[in-house]
Design a protein around this nucleic acid. Sequence first.
DNA 1: CTATAAACCTGCTGGC
DNA 2: TGCCAGCAGGTTTATA
Length: 281
Amino acid sequence: MPELPEVEYVARQLRAALVGARIMRVEVFWPRTVSRMTLEEFAARLADRRVLAVGRRAKYLVLTLDNGESLVIHRRMSGNLRLARADEAAPYTRVAFTLGNGRRLLFTDPRKFGRITIAMPEELPALFCRLGPEPLDSDFTPHVLAEQLAGHRRAIKTTLLDQSVVAGLGNIYADEALFRAGIHPLRSAASLTPDEIAALHAGIQGALQTGIEHGGTTFGRYRGLYDEAGANLEHIEVYRRTGQPCLRCGTPIVRLRIGQRSAHFCPHCQPAPVTSESSTV
DNA sequence: CTATAAACCTGCTGGC
DNA sequence: TGCCAGCAGGTTTATA
């Protein structure tokens, strides 16, 4: 569920609530959630550690510990982090971190796809080596986006979901960014003009920033650190709005299956690719 | 490279 | 009410 805005928002909440806190005890209720090490090693490396900082890379959460190691969390499809009282329980809890301040940090994850690991500082580059640029960094310019898209003949929708092209976009924000840019999801990535790439760049940053500002998008299970729903659904323009009128022109939103995922777009505001595109060099 | 399918998992919704 | 198909915000791996 979570994409960049949902991860960034919770990272900010965690930073405010968790920096300085000590991890007293770790319980794992679904072993496969912990990756790359045994449960014994996982618990031992976390015991008595303090959280020094909270960061984010793409859709990964990175908690820096006082011994230099990092607790790295990827929520995948249904993972949530929830700060609860020490005596509080939550459904689908897979890992629980008991903190020294009388609270517990719960990792809940109905579908069990989420993964948590611990990495030494020198391991982080390898862990993130397949990730493309951060779309909200100041050095992510339209020129960088153009370079990342160059050579890809795939549909732009599929290309935007490729984390090595741009890191952090998922199905919601890829659709929203393409709508903002007025680009049809089936357009070939390499066919976009410089003007279209500039519009897409603005669409990506705008959609992500709006998402963060409103605490993320809650369709079903995504919740913030205090179990609150994100308010960004009110600002979603096309995602899962199939059949509803386009907010700009009134044309019904269309849903297409592209590369095993659904894509939503306005057929009027995002004109279909012309056939000559495929023969363009 | 690109494209597709399958894995990993559970829960919800809609149709009959 | 019950059952079944299809769908879900993600990523990795195997196969053409």
